[in-house]
Design a protein around this nucleic acid. Structure first.
Lengths: 151, 151
DNA sequence: ATATATGCAAAACTTTTGCATACAA
DNA sequence: TTGTATGCAAAAGTTTTGCATATAT
């Protein structure tokens, strides 16, 4: 659903602009390329994947520095799936809260929304705080198994 | 509760023995030290943590090789919390299925059991298979926030 | 104009590997 | 005894950093 004229909620682009500004970061060619590549992807990307999505204009060291900055600005989220390297995706508030399906055979990682579960998880957060004093502000739920193609 | 004489279920040690044997692995001093250190810990350990728990008798390269072997034998489980390095814990069937509370302030990782949630998650696994064809055989749920001490 | 971001090269950190020796079965 | 595991050193893979230059504001 596109933003209607009377919609006062900022677009994703505007929201990203704001986060960069708040972090004191400039809107540069490299950062634009990374954010756009992330926006095009439907699953968290590794740095090599990001590099080929962005094209040869951005060297590795810059990619890593851009990622570090975007993490600090809360534009990106860092994920690790016990693969030995990190993956990244757009911050959940910029996209939507979701979980991951990790295929243990081919390594593919897919996004998945499970709205009904979130209610239950919200209740768990309260019970955790009551039982342990831990104040959870975020969670991650990943499923491991075989994707349709590998099964 | 200790195993009663009539209890036919193997102890954790026997179960580990079996898994090593099935994988064709010998029960050596280094592996024993690692398994014991893991058994003593209540939270997943990084390799440096494991190294100091085990003491100076086991060099890094051996530790990593031992970990690799124990992962293959399904005695250990590998976890990553987007810290840039891996953590390890005893396989869930050797301990108990649980989740993690990761403090984003001090970095502490604590174990947590949430039995009631497992039922809901089981239902989700079925719904995922129906909707996407993905066959989940395991899951991981981690909560991020502030531990009681940091809050 | 000025502070910030980039590009290149070098380095740091985690993890893996080759090879000779030591050890478990 | 025989194959497996270990220890040391060297290397590989991922991520970080120093410094000079280029760029956004």
């Amino acid at each position: 659903m596109a933003a209607a004229p009377q919609d006062r909620r900022p677009t994703v682009e505007q929201e990203i602009d704001q986060r960069l500004a708040k972090a004191g970061l400039r809107w540069t060619r490299g950062r634009r390329a990374v954010v756009e590549a992330m926006g095009r992807s439907t699953a968290p990307m590794s740095v090599p994947e990001l590099q080929s999505a962005v094209g040869p204009g951005v060297p590795l060291s810059s990619l890593y520095r851009i990622i570090t900055d975007l993490l600090e600005a809360k534009v990106l989220l860092k994920l690790e799936f016990a693969e030995g390297f990190a993956r990244f995706e757009l911050d959940e508030e910029l996209a939507s809260h979701h979980h991951h399906l990790v295929c243990t055979s081919c390594g593919q990682v897919a996004d998945l929304e499970l709205a009904d579960l979130e209610v239950t998880l919200g209740a768990s957060v309260k019970s955790i705080r009551r039982r342990t004093g831990f104040r959870a502000t975020a969670h991650r739920l990943d499923f491991f198994g075989l994707c349709a193609a590998c099964a």
